[in-house]
């Protein structure tokens, strides 16, 4: 005699048979991403394009906010994708491609910031108004330029990219406690530098 449980089991089987395998897979974006990575490994250029298309906006936006230069941000994002594809064999979990390429991009940004700090500061202001006034944006840029790369990156990821402490920690490869203390220091320094910069602006 069939029991209720058996009937339920039968119904589950019927349902599973009625749903095509592809549509079950498509529900999980990470599984879909893993498929794209696998196809890219096999040399599929369409899969590669799809991966780039999925992640380009986030990478370029973060790089632009860290570097304060949209054109340079595109260069860095491009370099990040190339490096990610070149080092695809290091990716243990194909589902984690997004964080893999994002971490590469952030590391490249920090490298550029370190080089920039060693070079004399660029004096020519970029006139691209978005969001706040040009003056505010220029002041922010000026103050951010005076922060060490690690503090600057922490501040941008948290305050501009609105990432959680855990996400910042994962991206930068440091413990959450370090993120918290860096953020505290970054805010203090930004505040002090901001006050000086605004006083200077007012005196002109």
């Amino acid at each position: 005699m069939l029991e209720w449980r058996d009937l339920q089991g039968e119904k589950v089987k019927e349902f599973q048979a009625s749903v095509p395998f592809e549509s079950v897979e498509a529900v999980d974006p990470k599984a879909e991403e893993a498929q794209l990575v696998l196809r890219t490994r096999q040399g599929d250029q369409n899969a590669l394009r799809e991966l780039v298309n999925r992640h380009r906006v986030r990478l370029i936006r973060t790089a632009a906010n860290v570097l304060r230069d949209p054109m340079e941000a595109e260069d860095v994002a491009q370099e990040a994708f190339l490096k990610a594809f070149r080092e695809l064999h290091r990716l243990r979990d194909d589902r984690a491609f997004a964080s893999f390429v994002y971490r590469i991009c952030v590391r490249l940004c920090v490298d550029r910031l370190r080089v920039k700090r060693a070079e004399p500061a660029e004096l020519e202001p970029r006139q691209e108004a978005q969001g706040g006034s040009i003056e505010t944006r220029m002041l922010v840029e000026k103050v951010l330029n005076q922060l060490p790369p690690d503090l600057r990156l922490t501040l941008v990821l948290r305050e501009m990219e609105q990432m959680s402490y855990e996400e910042v920690a994962e991206t930068m490869g440091v413990p959450v406690g370090t993120v918290r203390s860096r953020l505290h220091t970054a805010r203090e320094r930004f505040r002090a530098l901001w006050n000086i910069a605004t006083r200077e602006e007012e005196s002109y």
């Binding site: 380009r56 595109e74 969001g131």
Partner: peptide, 28 residues
Amino acid sequence: LLADVLQSAVIEHEGSQSFVDEVEEEVV
């Protein structure tokens, strides 16, 4: 205020239309 200032200075840049093509070309 600091948080507001930083938010107001966010750059919303999505990259050029040819970005994907350029990456693909570099990869090839």
